[in-house]
Amino acid sequence: MNTKVYWLIAVSLLWLDFSFAQTIKSQLFDNISIEENLLKINYLVDNSIYLNIASSNIINSASVSQTGNRNEAFIEQIRGGDNKGNIVKVTQCFENNLTSINQSGVGNQNYITQSGLNNKTIADINGLNNNSVIIQEGTNNYISQKMESDSKNYYIAQQGANNLIIQEGNEAISKPYLISQKGTGMRLFITSGAIK
């Protein structure tokens, strides 16, 4: 084969790899939307999840988009009450990123997506009727979420290898949740006040 044929094969393989990656990525990220006061998740084809916040009123909203390596995002929201909540949306790509969220009050929701290597999400959520969505794709990623009191529900998804989820709660009655891990070397730890 001449040089042109080698180039054609190489480009074809790259394209296939790119298409495959895009397919996985779309499964993880593209089927999630924030409509007005509604987190809509179509991650599973036959199982859609809808997370409604407590009220149609949003007090404060924060949005962060970071594309690159070694980025850090710290968000603190402490307003809330009377069924009015805050909303956070964070998107981080590539390696060694950190997201830290601290929410207090009622009816808060957060929505975090990270893709790449060695990313960390630390969420500390206090109060009532809070919702959380955290999605990671890649390797050696880490999610630690602490939801105190009677938070409403949460959804965590990881795909890749050697990822870790630590979920802590002190609620008397277990809240609805959905955790999805796909890949190898995954670890999951759940602590709940409802589990003695």
Binding site: Q66, G68, Q77
Partner: peptide, 25 residues
């Protein structure tokens, strides 16, 4: 940093080793 209610904050960063802090209190 935003105080009191009905505020919106948005940060977009492209690059590496960036820092974002949002405080809504």
């Amino acid at each position: 940093s935003e105080s009191t209610d009905n505020n919106k904050a948005k940060i977009v960063q492209t690059g590496s080793m960036n820092l974002t802090v949002i405080l809504q209190k």
